[in-house]
Nucleic acid binder design. Sequence first.
DNA 1: ACGCTCGGCGTATGCCCTACGCAGTAACCG
DNA 2: CGGTTACTGCGTAGGGCATACGCCGAGCGT
Lengths: 254, 254
Amino acid sequence: MSEKTGGELPRTLELLWGRSGRRARGPAQALSLDRIVTTAIAIADTEGLAALSMARLAERLGCATMSLYRHVANKHELWTFMLDAAPGPPPKIAPRPADWRAELHRWAVELTGVYRRHPWILQMTAAGTPPLDPGQLAWLDAGLRALGGTALRPREKMSVLLLVLHYVRGDTQLSTNDPGAAPGQDDPEGRPYGELLARLIDERFPALTEALNDGVFDEADTEDPSADFTFGLDRILDGVEKLVLDRGAHPAAG
Amino acid sequence: MSEKTGGELPRTLELLWGRSGRRARGPAQALSLDRIVTTAIAIADTEGLAALSMARLAERLGCATMSLYRHVANKHELWTFMLDAAPGPPPKIAPRPADWRAELHRWAVELTGVYRRHPWILQMTAAGTPPLDPGQLAWLDAGLRALGGTALRPREKMSVLLLVLHYVRGDTQLSTNDPGAAPGQDDPEGRPYGELLARLIDERFPALTEALNDGVFDEADTEDPSADFTFGLDRILDGVEKLVLDRGAHPAAG
DNA sequence: ACGCTCGGCGTATGCCCTACGCAGTAACCG
DNA sequence: CGGTTACTGCGTAGGGCATACGCCGAGCGT
């Protein structure tokens, strides 16, 4: 491959893509980037993102706080590494699957599992910059592959995938109760949401009142907890299917 | 209306719903909750959520830091008040509009404006608890009203609205560059995303490579910056429309 | 006029991230 | 084999953060 144009890549990207030159001059390192990132993920998983401080992390690793900074430039870089490592490999999807709908559905469901196992990902990525690490990009690539067999235009494929991604993220965020996320929670969430809502809203919220009376916020009567997720996902895929059929009749024009 | 069952509401909810008993014993208050919340929103809007500290806020208000705590229990409660006040009134939507699709579209577009004006909302609500304040509930009610004329089941209406909400939030988050969000940014985002991506991905990312070569990540060739948003929204509404027509033929069966 | 209540604020504590510099170690080189 | 050098671990310190606690003074109710 030819050398790409431009200057040097930032240190963080070099490390993420494994282009760091290994050197061995000083003592054998008792710490490693992998061990740091893995332990950081474990803390965030079990105790919430707010409990992940450099001091706590060092304590868990049995080293001094400042030792971490030999391997990680700052906390933001640690977060970047966590976002790269936590998702794990995406589902294997053929480049141009015949049944794009089943594959995209599978991709969405598996991604739900990622966010459920690591709810802090949704808090980290709220800051906004699009991903540049191989971990997240592999998931993006897998999702795009699901649409590879369709006649959608390239930009349409990306928009569709982002649409599904946004839905997965939003639904998981709403259905996940991250216990250690907000330590100063004074809202007693012990009472169910519908009960609190019933005591607050009045006739100025007619649509909410109607939904409340229809038992929308009651949690007991749901047979399958993922039923709501599947419902919304099917609506999205219905809309996409309409477009795919449309583009299939008239081949992509640009 | 009859008194609802249960004990007392938490202080935060009492204040949000304007049920706080006014008292006047001590000196006239130079500070007010409204002034505090308004100024906090102004700081978050212009300098980012990370720049909003109690000390900065007090400095802007010309008072001592600890004075704020006479009006706000803690910073989390301040966030709650900000989330209530920032959205402003939702668009007026009739209880059972004839053209639900146009109304829901309007709702989504206006909500986009809210998130664009106050990007920090997306960072705050990443913590997860569903809203209990009148400000956010008014938006929810307005969105539900748009679907009031359809034959969708109650739970389906809510799912559809949340689907649109998730998409609006996700799309706005991706298209917004909050400058003051992450102060420790070492990724030089001066270079465009597509250029960085081109230097990183290889043949292990075939779908991304294809998208890149097709110019999906080039930013110059877009005629309308909101075209991508409208595209995804239309796909959602297509899928919902299919369901609405289906439910219209066979009236809701519970 | 007195006392009670309440709003404003100064001080202090404990946590956080991290800049800086020192010491020890092991590969490399002559 | 001894010096050089690069690299790892870490102790200290500084600035920022949220906030617990208690004091002061102002004004309303009696």
